[in-house]
Design a protein around this nucleic acid. Sequence first.
DNA 1: GAGCACTGC
Length: 796
Amino acid sequence: MSKKRKLPGGVDVVKVGDKIISLDGYLSKKSKPATKEEASTSTDTAQPAPSTTGSNGTGNEAKQKERDGTSKPLAKKPLNPSRWQKPRGTSGDGSGEYLKSRRELPLWNYQDEIRRVLRERDVLVVVGETGSGKSTQVPQFLYCEDWCQRRKVEVDDKEVFVGGMIAITQPRRVAATTLAYRVSREMGTPLNAQKNGGDSGSPALGNHQRGLVGYSVRFDHQVPRGTRVKFVTEGMLLQDLLRDPNLRQYSAIIIDEIHERSVDVDLLSGFLKQVLSGDKAGRGGVPLKVIIMSATADIGGIRRFFSDARDEETAIPSGESETESTHSGVEVLKIEGRQYPVDIIYSPKAVPDLQEALLKTIFKIHLHEPLPGDILAFLTGQEEIESVQKLIEEYAATLASNMPKVKVFPLFGQLSIEAQHEAFKPVKAAFTRKIVLATNIAETSVTVPGIRYVVDCGKAKVKEFRSRLGMESLLAKAISKSSATQRAGRAGRESAGKCYRLYTEETFDGLQPTDLPEILRNDVLGAVLTMKARGIDDVLSFPLMDRPSIESLEKALIHLHFLGAISGDGTITEMGRKMAFFPVSAPLGRVLLAAADPRYDCVLEVIDIIACITAGDDIFHQLQTEEVKEEVEEYRKELYRREGDLLTYLTTMQHYAAENSDRVGWCRQRRINVRNMRQAMNIRRQLRGLCMREKMLAEAPPPDPQPFAPIPPSQAETVVKCFMKGFALKTAMLAPDSSYITAHGKHVVAIHPSSVLHGQKKEAIMFLDHVFTQKNYAKKVSVIQANWIAEAFEED
DNA sequence: GAGCACTGC
């Protein structure tokens, strides 16, 4: 019958930074070589090729690969020793132990081709499926190339150095840091893991040592002297661009995971395209190489975008079958991945009740499929996960005693790190199947080990910005084909698996091929300010892979003008430059600048509040049961302020900073998110430093801990007025029928239940967030006076 | 009476 699960003991997941990462096949030398995908963030499996039978490609494609012998991670390929050259410049010792696993990566055999293409041209697109090793190997293949060496050139009659380093961008911090550790070991100059002492120490700088590999993410920089390969977050490279529009320290930029299409990666792509097609005078004639890497083959638009950036005449016909050269001249290299086959099982007809279908499917798997083999179900949100968990547990209790048991784990972003951790551990009890109920967090951000069955409800909650209404919505929508493929792939990471789709094949065929890029879903206010601050005068003609509507760009320009970031003719103002320089949103940047105005003079208070509201989701955990609520509210009482949420955050930060013995215990007692509070302290320290440098603070703030002293009401009023400088458009007045009507747009809004002002009626309110979910909600709310609204619209 | 996921010199 079923035997006890055999899993690597204890070390298959590890916490790095804020994230829990599967290290399966990463630490153990005898298991398959790790790639970034396996180590942390996974990426899409390739888009299925259009199939004439209409069936989904994942299974077929994987089966094809199995026949080719390429889908088995442990399959030994005949190795050709002449293909292997040890990279020059490595110390040798460290890389040797990784060599064997590196040589087994699908990408290994493409290294000559990759080098050849980049010697001849400036742009290369690499499509590498999960496990191809592209993120770890491509920079190693390139850094010894002649074009990748630093050289002295003349720019504007001055001698400067250009190039020498490769930057490789990642959408997430955790991916950037784990990849850097991995590659530094492979290259024989390991980075020292430094424990950044939470919120008490200063950020690790770690540039005392020498080495070839480094990383740079917010609050955490490890860039050894002599670094040639630097892993960075996308936002970090954008910030580099602010100081150095020509990216002079780099010989190449590798954009990884471009298929995720964050706003930052879209902006970076635009700037890189400009550098590629510019005259290179700012780089002393030294070209910048750009390598675009995607996990999905659906990159037509991306390739077209970069094709236009280069000279048509240099197009070189490709002799290799693996590379595609088109008339437009950008070569695309496709690398097979390593994925076990996954059978796709569609629902034969549309399901009327998703929850019922989900329960039936889960128990069908549980009662008919052998152990071991855990189940991962994709749902839309916390509420749904919790109700399904209850139903599963109730039904499981009725099963006969000779049936396998189940253990259910919820998995969503707002869960504490400990609770998330539970979902990654193998279940200890014998004869038990693990069922993980997850949001989209399990699609890209984390990898749950042991999964053999995936159940996909076909939906996900997405945030969208309605520029016409000036508000966001967060609603469940149908996922894309790419997303469905990615979800299915989660069943085939350790062995062959099955994916049950709770929708029909026809429904799948009708899905959008890819998700809407973020730049088409978000407020473009920040993106436009980013462009303006980097010298883009005409934002309407800035090259973007997907262009937001003119209307939304215009709305953003008007908003920026209102905030004082651009002048009447659209040029950036001094204030706008400063706003772009701060790592906060444009309206919050405006608030920070107002706080430094002698009329307000509350920089430290505003920093404390901004730190709390930008440290992730709400620092206050929601209170589930009445008992917990009663107990916790007693402790929280001293934090809550009648003026609203902003002053409540300030009071919380001040109490937290004053607490010097047991901050974790202090947070636990008040059900405050420890992780976010630490992050808030990091942000607070960073913003204080920036404000000192910008001379917005006359003197250095007193060191913690300072005794807690409540802010007097008059000063509290000043702080709220300061926020009005950034959020005057997000205000509402109480109507005779007791509803709140927004000043701008005249919509009805309700105060969100998470607000301390929920259920209260005040003359007027200001709020920082405006989101439609169940209702039109105002979040992060403060009490204001009606006449402040008019005041805030007055010119300085 | 309610909470998709990331991220910033």
